[in-house]
Design a protein around this nucleic acid. Structure first.
Length: 270
DNA sequence: CAGATATGACAAC
DNA sequence: TTGTCCTATCTGG
């Protein structure tokens, strides 16, 4: 589930559920027992998302940092918490509502300087008001690395994962192998604006849906896709299947240890 | 029931 | 570039 939109959505949900309240924190699985003891019984002041990182800021200056990694997920519910099933790393609750976390890559309590250091190594996040896209462009435009790798580098842009990056490059008409250096400033502005729009929509809807959004093939100045069936994304994980816009078989390759997908016709060249 | 897979990141080579 | 880690779920035999 987890690209940046998921984490921002969680931050908002956790804020609505628990911010300003005293919460109990435990680790049924045991792996977060010490951290849980540090924050349990404190007031959760505020929640925040930065890229794919979730922060719960507690009274007393401590911050819970969660990174979902590939499999991490939260569940929550009303009433009394159910008996723990499986590997529940963290459980938190207040009267009437509980929250569980399984499988995170990171679940730890950080000090203020550690939080600062974490935030300092992240690039601009399209979902944050304080984001400066030019900071990302300064890195992109001076690199020979392929765009797919640059945009997935969280120190360049924080939040997008392989799906958003794959799809935004399709929508920009650029192959994932395009060297960063080749990206014109206007093209970057377009990609950034597209990331902002798509990811905001992702936060609202709780899913990544790049085809049925406001940037339809028609709006992109391309012929409408014939197939009305087919799903939420243009090319991600659609290797060998016909491009939804032009019908060419979607190509795939491994780029920077991640799978890339692109349409060789719609994304012919920079 | 073993094995593959999943929207990620990092250390080690 | 490869291996490793976090957990659950789906596939096939």
């Amino acid at each position: 589930m987890p690209e940046g939109h998921t984490v921002h959505r969680l931050a908002a949900r956790h804020r609505a559920l628990f911010a300003g309240r005293r919460v109990t924190v435990s680790s049924p699985q045991g792996r977060f027992a010490a951290g849980a003891a540090e924050i349990s019984g404190r007031v959760l002041r505020e929640t925040e998302a930065a890229g794919k990182h979730l922060l719960h800021r507690y009274s007393g200056g401590r911050t819970l940092h969660v990174h979902l990694g590939l499999y991490g997920r939260f569940t929550d519910g009303t009433g009394d918490p159910p008996p723990p099933v499986g590997e529940v790393r963290l459980r938190m609750g207040r009267r009437g509502h509980w929250l569980e976390l399984r499988g995170p890559a990171a679940c730890e309590v950080l000090t203020a300087p550690e939080v600062e250091a974490l935030l300092a190594r992240l690039g601009p996040d399209p979902l944050r008001a304080d984001a400066d896209p030019q900071r990302a462009y300064a890195r992109i435009s001076t690199s020979d690395r392929p765009l797919a790798a640059l945009l997935m580098d969280q120190s360049i842009v924080a939040g997008p994962g392989v799906i958003y990056v794959t799809e935004v490059l399709f929508r920009a008409g650029l192959p994932p192998t395009t060297p960063g250096r080749m990206l014109a400033p206007e093209a970057w502005q377009g990609i950034w604006a597209d990331l902002v729009a798509l990811m905001r929509e992702g936060v609202e809807r709780g899913r990544i849906d790049t085809v049925h959004s406001r940037h339809t093939p028609e709006a992109m100045g391309r012929p409408p896709r014939v197939d009305r069936h087919g799903g939420e994304v243009y090319v991600y994980r659609r290797a060998g299947q016909p491009c939804l816009v032009c019908g060419t078989a979607v190509r795939t390759a491994t780029l920077a240890a991640r799978n890339s997908y692109w349409c060789p016709t719609c994304q012919a060249t920079w």
